[in-house]
Design a protein around this nucleic acid. Structure first.
Lengths: 163, 163
DNA sequence: AGGTAAATGCAAGCTGGTTGCATTTGGAGC
DNA sequence: GCTCCAAATGCAACCAGCTTGCATTTACCT
């Protein structure tokens, strides 16, 4: 009988690191651990604070870079926020590893296109699977004469807990 | 007979400064002059570069703050850009001056809600009078449980000149 | 014209991020 | 298990983009 609940949820992420020839080190485990413990966006500073003196700021920085390069994290900026945020890409949503198992040239593409809403009171960030309608994109192209290649849509509001 | 074309376009802006009890100084004239010469978004750094040694960086900074506080400029950040942008609010689009001529409590509200599209090649920024459809907002509120108070929509693309 | 609150230049400070370098270490190959 | 070396780490220095304190100068009210 299978007992999926017995498998440590960190394992698939570690596997992916090893497959990408990225060393599994204590710092990377610690950082990854925080993302798994609380499924929320972290910043360089908030992670460093959370890890206390366990891990130097520059090491957190390089751990974030490595995990992002390996396709485990996505990076984004929020309007009005100075810091850069990172959030864990769910294992099943991760892009193929480049150069492994015949992955195509488009590997490492965005894991899953989405947008964010931030609570103006508690700072909580939620992901949104909702996107800009194609019709609006067309209108923007017509009105501006630009050809759109990218868009960013972020909301601010008050979350259910804070209301 | 009236000859509107003979009026210096800077005058209404200077009037507004004086009405807001903000001193009209050489630095503020210089900064305002740049916004009037080229109707594009400027950053603290680009303005300082453009003004050469005429004006200290901190003075450009404080001139921008003063002009923004007086409601002559809007401030915004673009995704992927580290610097903060400022653009001139057309005189006829400016909000009422608080405390002057019986302006209501909502004075100094946003001049005119809009969004931006940036050229990924030349950095040119255009304003868009297009906005997020109300229906989409409703969907986001339903899906997230948040009450939306603010939104930011920015596009990146290739402008007509760069294509 | 004179007085004063506000603007300016200069230098120093701050946040958030990034890098060079000497040392340590994960993990592939024995 | 043990060796070895490319890669990871900690430390300190550095960088961009503002932001502020302070002594001096100045716009503009009277």
């Amino acid at each position: 009988m299978k007992r999926p609940e017995s498998a440590d949820p960190v394992l698939p992420y570690l596997d992916r690191l090893r497959q990408g020839k990225v060393k599994v080190t204590p710092n990377r485990r610690r950082v990854l651990g925080r993302f798994l413990e609380s499924d929320k966006p972290w910043t360089l500073q908030s992670l460093h604070r959370s890890l206390g003196e366990e891990c130097d700021l520059s090491s957190v920085y390089r751990a974030l870079s490595a995990l992002r390069a390996a396709g485990l994290l996505e990076e984004f900026r929020l309007p009005g926020e100075k810091e850069t945020f990172f959030s864990l890409i769910k294992h099943h949503e991760q892009a193929r590893i480049p150069g492994v198992r015949g992955a195509g040239p488009k590997a490492r593409a965005h894991a899953h296109h989405h947008h964010h809403i931030v609570c103006q009171d508690c700072g909580q960030v939620s992901h949104l699977d909702i996107c800009v309608p194609a019709g609006l994109m067309g209108k923007v192209e017509d009105a501006s004469g630009f050809r759109i290649t990218e868009h960013h849509l972020e909301f601010k509001g008050v979350c259910g807990d804070c209301r």
